[in-house]
Design a protein around this nucleic acid. Sequence first.
DNA 1: CCAGTATATGAATATGTGTTCATATATGTT
DNA 2: AACATATATGAACACATATTCATATACTGG
Lengths: 118, 118
Amino acid sequence: MEAKTCLCKNIDPQEMQSMQNEVPNADTISRMAEFFKVFGDGTRLKILYYLSRHELCVADLSGLVGMQQSAVSHQLKLLRLNHLVKLRKEGSTVYYALDDCHVDSIFALALLHIQEQK
Amino acid sequence: MEAKTCLCKNIDPQEMQSMQNEVPNADTISRMAEFFKVFGDGTRLKILYYLSRHELCVADLSGLVGMQQSAVSHQLKLLRLNHLVKLRKEGSTVYYALDDCHVDSIFALALLHIQEQK
DNA sequence: CCAGTATATGAATATGTGTTCATATATGTT
DNA sequence: AACATATATGAACACATATTCATATACTGG
């Protein structure tokens, strides 16, 4: 992962081609960006944190994150569309739970980064 | 804002309290969200990918990601403010390189997630 | 000095996003 | 049946953000 010297403007066309060949394709890049965007919001981070501790219904999540039920519902839908949470209905109550086992490691990496600054 | 009606039917109140005590504080949550936001854009992802391969000047990055020099400059500033890239000046040329050793593992986690979805 | 090159920056704009409000749907209770 | 509860949803708004354009700054070579 050691960076070579920049060949600025005189870059070897083969090297340029090699990098461009190996860059993730547009669809992959787009899906990766979407994935990270999901984590780029405090409300969703809190929801994911609480769900990493416990399966929870919408009302309780609303109370825990301090946001209106509607806001939480909207965010839960987004999380569900991105395959990060799943739901289970029990009567009129809907319980949400994590649907991705990597959430903890992703949180850990982010914490590592922000702790290394300053 | 308290949950009015659903008083944690399945969760004992101690666990509820424990979760609220252990949730990352507002500043940490905010910084984590900022961190993920940086990765939530295709142009920045491509820049980070190329920099993980080579130290590169702005002009070459601009060519590689297919974006105007100005756009790349703006994004590089954002990446620098978030301690993800560092710069080295040589005459009028500015070379950028990664400044965070976790970028590869973060990319790997994201790829893992999107590959697990069908 | 001047002209050319490399990068940075501010303003403008267009697009995206998070929240709230009001309301709809679905289930439960009497 | 009516009414309450739990959640979902659409519209509207305010705010953030990515890009482009025009221009500024900084360095290089003649």
